[in-house]
Amino acid sequence: MNVVNEMHLNFPSKSINESFARSAVSAFVMELDPTIGELADIKTAVSEAVTNCIVHGYRREIGTVYIDAKITEDKLVIIKIRDKGVGIEDVKEAMQPLFTTAKDEERAGLGFAVMQSFMDSVKVHSVPEKGTSVTLTKKIVPLR
């Protein structure tokens, strides 16, 4: 897997940075000439993962959100979004559609379902009290 470009972004877990984060990643993948649909999918998935770091991971504090994005030779976009927050006890349960630990904040429990539907793959690694990392990948299909 030959990486042809990469970028790294750190920012404090303030909700104002949600739109900044998804726009930055979207600007980064532009070199692959994605369709409007592919770009919208990536933006939405990034927004979900970043929002989760902010509202769940750093629920009790402001911490740092880390984004590491890569583009490979075969037009794969790999985006890792992580926090050093509270972590998830049971990842399988957390990824079930409609599961949420924040119902009273009007959360729908659909973030992971959206990521899974909009990206080719979603991998979650989490350690309670250490943090969570979500790796999103999507292949950008060249226009013919």
Partner: peptide
């Protein structure tokens, strides 16, 4: 122009 699952929460609410 853009909406994520927070918008779904807004609708349900």
């Amino acid at each position: 122009s853009f909406m994520d699952s927070s918008g779904i929460g807004l609708i349900m609410g």
